[in-house]
């Protein structure tokens, strides 16, 4: 679940914010069962790194949108009321959307590896650290609980 949440966070990081498309994905994700910490955290980290990825995603979006096969269908699609708000004719939005959705399995695998590496090398240290901090600062205890919140009952990830 943590890896799933992280992958969704990466997907939303690719889609430029303050677009209808972003809200369409973000709102449901807030309503379904997800590891919100992993989701929001990964999205925030991803947003910080996006300035480096934007030129590539924009180029990819322009490449996709420039395909002649899309010309007529996209014209008909964008003629529908409301679709303009999706800004899918913008190469940055389209590229980010494509990278986020089409690359989701990749982001999931990537997140899975990250989670396993974390659990193998960092989990105990982090838990210990937050535990110590939590004893001194009660608020940090909440963070400690949040870190391990996604663990299924019985211990499975």
């Amino acid at each position: 679940m943590i890896a799933f949440s992280m992958a969704v966070g990466i997907t939303l990081a690719f889609i430029p914010g303050v677009t209808l498309l972003w809200f369409i994905f973000f709102i449901p994700m807030m309503l379904v069962r997800l590891n919100q910490a992993a989701f929001l955290g990964m999205m925030a980290v991803g947003k910080l790194l996006m300035p480096f990825a934007d030129p590539f995603s924009e180029g990819l979006g322009f490449f996709i949108l420039s395909r002649p096969v899309l010309y007529e269908p996209m014209g008909r699609f964008l003629s529908l009321p409301g679709t303009s708000w999706l800004r899918l004719n913008d190469s940055l939005v389209a590229g980010g959307f494509f990278l986020g959705i089409a690359g989701w399995p990749l982001w999931f695998l990537f997140s899975l590896i990250l989670v396993r590496l974390y659990r193998r090398y960092l989990a105990v240290k982090v838990k210990t650290l937050f535990g110590k901090l939590g004893e001194k600062v009660p608020l940090l205890k909440k963070l400690s609980l949040a870190v391990s919140a996604g663990r299924r009952i019985g211990g499975a990830a």
């Binding site: 934007d54 924009e58 940055l92």
Partner: peptide, 21 residues
């Protein structure tokens, strides 16, 4: 408009489609 500036790009290139707008 796809010039790399400080921070995230605001928008990309708008591709023209034959939409009735």
């Amino acid at each position: 408009s796809g010039v790399v500036r400080k921070g995230r790009m605001k928008r990309g290139r708008v591709v023209y489609f034959p939409a009735v707008l």
